[in-house]
Write a protein that binds this DNA or RNA. Structure first.
Lengths: 219, 219
DNA sequence: GTCTATAAACCGATAGAC
DNA sequence: GTCTATCGGTTTATAGAC
């Protein structure tokens, strides 16, 4: 415990730098985060940072890549479990909300750094798009599974876009009121209505196959 | 025309600086936009910029204030005209989409600069919140008028938040795919479903007072 | 109000001892 | 791999002539 293997020293430092850089960049944005800020915040000298990552841009790419793999690991499915639409939808919304709550950095990194696309390097732009595309694919697969949309890809696309934009908008609202959470209740109502609007059968969803006066039974 | 009154020279320069600064800051973000960039882009020397606005922060505050008044001037109502919910909703969505399309700067300024809240001055933070609050108040008044929610303020609040978050999320999507537009179709379906979910009467909306099989008649 | 010139601090990045 | 020291460039901001 006191005699940590020397081989791990570098990896641990690397992680510490990434932790600090990710935190600072998600709070201040890429441009406003300087190497010296990262250095003094994590304790390691400037040149160590440049040894691990070749440039400031390299730090950004590594931070984003790490955030992406962490987020995707926290979004296990693709196939959402559940017997009917209502169960799968609830499971899906719970997953989205949980990932959103436990990984606040990821989205803010995408936002604060994705903005800089114009100035950023090719590698950085590629990593930003990679991150974003992974989210889009995941969301499309998940809603496709929830609403059984294998033969209606354009509907799956619309529902996925809708969900992701609501999540992004909530992330924006979050830095005005930090305790803002993703409101899954209204989102649930909206997704059900959109699916119904496109003629998707909603077996097992209360208030949809039983024409009970237009109220969907929540709250 | 050639003999412009000397008194206006300063004001015209001031506007030119604000135009350039707003454009650059909305594209690169506050931190990544330097005074010398603004100077060389608008032709006026650095010291003129500092004469008009006392600091870089002062430029930011002035840019935001101008964007706010311009946006609010382009959002005329408060009271949305229309005989029934459907007409008023369409008018409201048209207004939102139009403002969103014609004032892309405003939102991006809020996003790119609102992020920097932690480092920014008190005046800057105040102006960001002022801008954001004005949008919230407008949206709440508008949806309240659309759905006749004078005695259901909590519902008006939810619908306004929902709309603004969708608009923010679309603004985010926009800098990944610049030709992204606000999808008012799905938003319309979602808002109607949310209103119905809260028991708001929707006189005159096709597919809601006539139980016609759950499809809302669009597309 | 506009210009040139410059101060003082900070930036990203590197050299080289250990 | 980590450290000190530093280079060259850019930043915000100011001084002072016009």
């Amino acid at each position: 415990m006191t005699e940590a293997p020397a081989l791990d020293r570098g990896a641990r430092s690397r992680d510490a730098i990434l932790d600090t850089a990710g935190d600072l960049m998600s709070r201040h944005g890429y441009a406003a985060t300087s190497i010296s800020m990262i250095s003094s915040a994590c304790g390691l000298p400037v040149s160590s940072i440049y040894w691990h990552f070749r440039s400031k841009d390299g730090i950004y790419v590594a931070v984003l890549e790490r955030a992406r793999t962490a987020l995707l690991a926290a979004l296990p499915p693709g196939e959402v479990p559940g017997a009917d639409v209502a169960q799968r939808l609830d499971a899906f919304l719970a997953q989205v909300e949980d990932a959103f709550r436990r990984h606040p950095h990821g989205v803010k990194l995408l936002l604060g750094l994705g903005m800089v696309q114009q100035d950023a390097s090719a590698a950085a732009v590629a990593e930003v798009r990679h991150y974003r595309d992974a989210l889009v694919v995941w969301a499309r697969d998940a809603v496709s599974s929830v609403f059984a949309l294998r033969d209606r890809p354009e509907v799956a696309d619309e529902l996925a876009r809708f969900t992701l934009r609501m999540a992004s908008g909530t992330a924006v609202a979050r830095w005005f009121e930090p305790d803002t959470v993703l409101e899954t209740g209204p989102l649930r109502v909206a997704l059900l209505a959109l699916a119904a609007h496109h003629g998707i059968p909603l077996r097992g969803v209360p208030g949809e196959d039983a024409p009970s006066r237009g109220v969907t039974s929540r709250e």
